[in-house]
Every structure is written in structure tokens, then in C-alpha cells.
């Protein structure tokens, strides 16, 4: 099970591609869809590889993406807010 999860705020994205390039586990790709400003935001292509390191969040100049850690408690997924 994935250790992390990516959240994308599609409307803020300007498609610079930093997150796609610098995600260490290559979770993301720019999608062919447009947001309302005409940019191609990223989408998740390998959710299982996300470690929740949030490097995408640190690189994103538009505050449009971030990663969070997910802890597994029993069979249930719980977001880690620590």
C-alpha cells in the first residue's frame, strides 16, 4: 500500500512541470486535460509509488500540489498529520 498521497489543486497549476520532473519516485505526469486557464495540470499515474515526501509541494511555485504521509492502522488508511 502507498505510504503517501498527492493532492492537486488543479485550478492553481501553471504547468511548469517541476513536480513531474523532481518527484523521486515518478508518481506524476502532466495530463492532457486543461484547467480553466488553459494549462495542463499534473495527474497521478503511479499512486502506489508515492512516499508522501512532499517534495512536489516544496517545488511547486504555485502552491498547487502537496504530498502527505499515510499511516496504515490495521486494514484502515489514516492520514498522518504529525
Amino acid at each position: 500500500m502507498a505510504k503517501g498521497r498527492v493532492s492537486i489543486v488543479v485550478e492553481r497549476c501553471k504547468a511548469c512541470g517541476f513536480c513531474v520532473e523532481f518527484c523521486p519516485t515518478k508518481v506524476l505526469a502532466l495530463s492532457s486535460a486543461f484547467n480553466s486557464k488553459g494549462y495542463h495540470p499534473p495527474h497521478v499515474v503511479h499512486p502506489e509509488k508515492c512516499s508522501g515526501c512532499d517534495l512536489c509541494g516544496m517545488y511547486c511555485p504555485d502552491f498547487a500540489i502537496y504530498g502527505t504521509k499515510v499511516k496504515t492502522v490495521g486494514a484502515q488508511e489514516v492520514d498522518d498529520e504529525s
Binding site: K14, K37, C60, P61, D62, F63, Y66
Partner: peptide
């Protein structure tokens, strides 16, 4: 969950004026 930088931003002013690929936002993170 929300973006960890969100509490430090005036969210009502987003999206900001910086161009695509400008590095200033990254420094703010």
C-alpha cells in the same frame, strides 16, 4: 488535509501573478 504552506498564504489572493516556471513561489515554500 491541506497544503502545509496554506496557513502562511493569503489564499484569497491566489493564483498569484508570478509567471509559469518562475522560481519565486518555490522560495516561499
Amino acid at each position: 488535509l491541506t497544503n502545509p504552506v496554506e496557513p502562511f498564504l493569503r489564499s484569497d489572493r491566489m493564483p498569484h501573478i508570478w509567471c509559469p516556471g518562475c522560481g519565486i513561489g518555490t522560495t516561499v515554500n
